[in-house]
Every structure is written in C-alpha cells, then in structure tokens.
C-alpha cells in the first residue's frame, strides 16, 4: 500500500512545525496585565528568542491557572504556546495534554479544540486515513458502479438477441436481410465505439433526434455489441455439423424449428467463452460513455480524483472493476460447464 501516501504526510508535517515556530516567534504578547504571570511570560519569550526551547517550555508551564492570582488570557496563551512547542518537537501526547488543560477550564475554547483535533489527525495511522478516504469516496463510486452495472446488464440482454438476428440475417440468402446485416457488422465493428457514441449523442440532434445520455449510451453499446456477437454466433452456427440440419429436416422440422431446437442450442458451448471475453471487455468499455455526460464508475472516480487529488479513489475504482470482471468470469465458467454437460461421458 505504499502508493497510498497521504499527500500531506511526512513532508507536510515538517513544514507545519516550521511554520508554527515562526508564528510563535512573531506572535505579540497578549495582555500584560499583571504581576507574576507577566514576568514568567516575558522570561519565557526571551528564552524562546534565544532558542532555549526546553527552558521556555518549563516557564510556559508555570503560568498558573485562572483564579485569584491567574489571568484567563495569559493562561490560554501560555498553554497554547506550550502545546505548539510540543507539537513542533513531535511530542504529540504532551501537545495534546497542554491544549486539554485549556479545554478542562474552558470547554468552548475554539483554538484549543481545533488544536486537539489537528493533533489527533496527525497522529492517526496511515491505514486509518485510507479507511476514512474509502468511506468518503465509496458512496459516489458505488453510485457510479450501479450505473455501470445497468449499462452492462442491458447490453448483455440486448446484444445476444440483436447479434442472433444479425447473424441469421447474414446467413440468409435473402436480400435485404443479408445486406443490412453485412452493413451493420461492417460499420459498427469498423469504427471506434467512442465515435459511434458521439454520433448518436451529438450527431443525431442534427437530424432532429435528441436522445438523453442514457438512451444514447444504451443504443450505442447495444448495437456495437450486437455487431460483435453476431459474428461469434454466425461462426458458432456454421461450426455445427451439417448432418444435424439434415437430421432435423428429415423428421420434418422447419428452418426455424431446426435453428431454435437443434442448431442454436448446440452453439452455446462454443460461443460462451468468446461471449465471456466480449462481456468483460464490455464492463470496461462502459467507461467510454463518460464522454457523453454519463456518470458511471470511471466518471465518478475521475470527478473525485480531480476534486481531492487522492489516489485512493482510483485504486478503489480499479478494485470495483476487478470485482465485476472476476464475478463475470466465474459466472461464465459456470454457465460454460452447464451448457457442455452433454459432451461429458
């Protein structure tokens, strides 16, 4: 997990402590109301100016709590100075304790409370930071991921049906079916999906058809994948022994009965592995629809990465994609096993 370096990590802490030191040196005295505390504070500031930090710490600690001989302003000032000094020397527990002395007396002191919070943040382990980031990013990513799944499932249902129709069209000897099928395959396999999406979303309005981003995405993915699957299905049908068609014909089956009952069921075993390939490519191809204003997983990740510049979000997105592709791989292995049952002795 070394890539998960918090951008405000080690270097950041060093910068912050230097800055604190300067702030301490430059800060003017608060009130110079009274006696003993006043003297201690002056002495402490002198020690600090000379670089005697240890001594300054001892002196700041001696400023008494508010009461008969203590003043609120000086007490808060001294404990804050002390807390910052401890913070700059990375003594987080003492820094926190000093600030807590203030909140013990003044629970509403904003300066002390903020300080405690930032101490807590800086001592938190890295993995906690990562977990927090995950919790912060996950809701939006999951929302994007659900859109990705919608696109994938829709395409997975539509494209085998479209693919089958195109394949049967291309196999038929009747025009215009074979011509139309040839054209669809030629065009949609021959041009980038990105271009097709642009045509549908930005181009169709020119001829009076305006589609929502979702409709454009579904149509683009649906046709594109139909064209790819059509060639797989066609090859599957052609790979079935011609004797099967003859046997079906010989008992009086029509062409459509032969296809439906005899030929196509036998193609399943052969087309499932290439189908699995296509659908895994599909999961990743859905990222392309982010270019036509759809917010799916990739777009959601991109938006948050640009906002927070935190690599965790990209790693999370990668994990979600991997979960999807793994689940699909396993699912298709199962299906492949099932549809091939009749080939095992």
């Amino acid at each position: 997990m070394t890539i998960l370096v918090n951008r405000f990590g080690k270097g950041g802490a060093l910068l912050a402590s230097l800055f604190l030191l300067f702030a301490l040196l430059a800060s003017p005295a608060v009130s110079s109301a009274g006696g003993e505390s006043d003297a201690i504070l002056k002495e402490a500031r002198d020690a600090l100016a000379l670089g005697h930090i240890d001594q300054a710490q001892v002196l700041f600690a001696q400023v008494p709590a508010p009461g008969p001989d203590g003043d609120e302003g000086e007490f808060v000032y001294s404990r804050m100075q002390l807390a910052r000094l401890f913070f700059s020397t990375k003594n987080m527990s003492k820094a926190r304790a000093s600030a807590e002395e203030i909140t013990a007396v003044y629970p509403d002191n904003a300066e002390a409370k903020n300080f405690i919070a930032s101490v807590d943040r800086s001592v938190r382990p890295e993995w906690r930071q990562v977990v927090d980031d995950c919790i912060r990013f996950l809701p939006s990513l999951l929302k994007g991921a659900s859109m990705t799944l919608i696109l994938v499932f829709f395409t997975m249902i539509v494209s085998p049906i479209g693919g089958l129709l195109i394949a049967l069209g291309k196999l038929s000897k009747t025009q215009p079916f074979s011509g139309i099928s040839w054209f669809i395959i030629w065009f949609f396999r021959g041009t980038p999906l990105l271009l097709q999406l642009f045509f549908i979303y930005y181009g169709l309005p020119a001829i009076g058809i305006t589609l929502s981003p979702l409709a454009s995405a579904l149509i683009g993915l649906g046709i594109n994948y139909s064209a790819y699957l059509a060639e797989i299905i066609r090859a599957g049908i052609l790979s079935i022994d011609h004797g099967q068609t003859e046997a079906a014909k010989a008992i009086g089956m029509t062409y459509s009965q032969t296809m439906r009952r005899v030929i196509i069921p036998q193609t399943y075993k052969r087309i499932i592995p290439p189908f699995a390939n296509e659908f895994i490519a599909l999961i990743k191809d859905t990222a392309l629809v982010s270019t036509i204003a759809m917010v799916e997983l990739m777009r959601a990740a991109d938006q948050m990465f640009n906002a927070y510049f935190n690599i965790t979000v990209l790693v999370l997105a990668a994990f979600i994609y991997l979960i999807f592709t793994t689940a699909f791989t396993l699912l298709f292995e199962k299906i492949e096993y099932k549809v091939g049952v009749y080939e095992r002795r």
Partner: peptide
C-alpha cells in the same frame, strides 16, 4: 412450400450413415 415439404418428410423416415443424433438431447 416449406410447410408441404415438412409434412412429406415427416412421413418418410431417414436413417443416416453418421447417425446424426442430437447430442444436446
């Protein structure tokens, strides 16, 4: 027509050298 041919074929049984059983059934 396909309909008439199918009706005819169903009345004439045929057995092939390579059996051509439907392997998925």
């Amino acid at each position: 027509s396909q309909k008439k041919l199918c009706a005819l074929r169903s009345e004439i049984g045929m057995v092939f050298q390579q059996f051509n059983l439907f392997p998925h059934m």
